[in-house]
């Protein structure tokens, strides 16, 4: 089995599905000959031709609308938005159009589009490149939102996303692209959307998280173990829809929970998870459900990035508040 980075696992998934399904099309800015600015589509145009893997003019709304039109001709488009900070340019195509395709057609049409896009802090990108905007997507009925935390999951989740008949926003954390390798099987496998993964079992506290914060949460859990706390870490993998069963089962077991996200605090995924827990399991709770998030500012690119981003230390600190409440 090959040791792959997350970006290599993503390329493999794209290659697998381009091979499997002639209706899969990969397109976006610089994804053709150049193989994408992060090389996610490296070699794909050469292997599958310009008809299946192609560059578009530089306009995100255009890319989104193109995907909708191609879906109406029976294709399974996998467009790339070069950086997810550019999503504001394509909000109508995503939230206003493809998310509503079933509604607008009275259920007679659908838009099996998978939008891939890099995001996330810690790699010193310019402004509007790193912001965690998944909350915007999760607030749009009709979309699914997936954020893998490692190479193995990235491949299995991307294959599921492309095969899904609803539009999926597939967000790839830039810091995870090449930060570590993992064994990734060459054969195809899928990981179901909407299923969380218990990364680490524990009995005292449930940390519910996703994306790059999974690594930080595991680090924090290991730190807390030294002080004899048994911490469970749940990687949501899909943030819309949530895997409510896994979350609630864990909270009912541990009686204490916290949610960790890289996004700013206001109106985000973490708030949604907290609300679901209090709706469904308040009598199992021995402490308030706290959150570790970034502050409510726009992404602090470059200068204050390291302080702005939540880390294992922040998680340990908040975990102790929950554990000792």
């Amino acid at each position: 089995m090959a040791q792959l980075t997350m970006i290599q696992a993503i390329t493999e998934a794209l290659k697998t599905e381009l091979k499997n399904d002639e209706n899969v099309l990969v397109f976006g800015e610089d994804v053709g000959n150049n193989g994408g600015v992060f090389r996610a589509t490296e070699g794909l145009q050469k292997e599958f031709g310009e008809d299946r893997v192609f560059d578009t003019p530089l306009a995100e709304s255009g890319i989104g609308g193109l995907a909708i039109g191609l879906a109406l001709q029976g294709y399974r488009p996998v467009p790339e938005i070069q950086f997810f900070g550019f999503v504001f340019e394509v909000m109508d195509s995503i939230s206003g159009q493809m998310a509503r395709m079933r509604y607008r057609s009275g259920g007679s049409q659908h838009a099996p589009v998978t939008i891939r896009s890099p995001f996330g802090g810690g790699v010193h990108t310019p402004e509007m490149h790193a912001d965690s905007l998944e909350g915007l997507m999760a607030a749009s009925p009709g979309l699914k939102v997936v954020i893998p935390s490692n190479p193995y999951d990235a491949k299995g989740l991307l294959l599921s996303a492309i095969r899904d008949n609803d539009p999926v926003i597939f967000l790839e954390h830039m810091k995870l692209y090449r930060s570590f390798r993992q064994e990734v099987p060459e054969e195809e496998y899928t990981i179901p959307l909407g299923k969380a993964d218990v990364k680490r079992e524990g009995t005292d506290l449930s940390i519910i998280t996703y994306g790059a914060m999974v690594q930080e949460s595991i680090k924090a859990a290991e730190e807390l173990e030294k002080e004899n706390y048994s911490v469970e870490v749940i990687d949501l993998r899909t943030i819309q829809p949530l895997d409510i069963e896994t979350i609630i089962a864990s909270v009912e077991k541990t009686g204490r929970a916290m949610v960790v996200q890289e996004a700013q605090k206001q109106a985000g995924i973490a708030a949604n998870v907290v609300a679901e827990i209090t709706d469904r399991a308040i009598l199992s709770l021995d402490a308030p459900v706290l959150r570790v998030t970034a502050p409510d500012t726009v992404f602090a690119f470059s200068q204050a990035e390291e302080v702005w981003l939540p880390n294992a230390k922040d998680i340990v600190e908040t975990a102790k508040k929950v554990l000792t409440f």
């Binding site: 609308g65 909708i68 039109g69 191609l70 001709q73």
Partner: peptide, 11 residues
């Protein structure tokens, strides 16, 4: 308008 381009490209 942009969706029409997608349909046309698909055709």
């Amino acid at each position: 308008y942009i969706q029409a381009t997608g349909v046309a490209l698909g055709m």
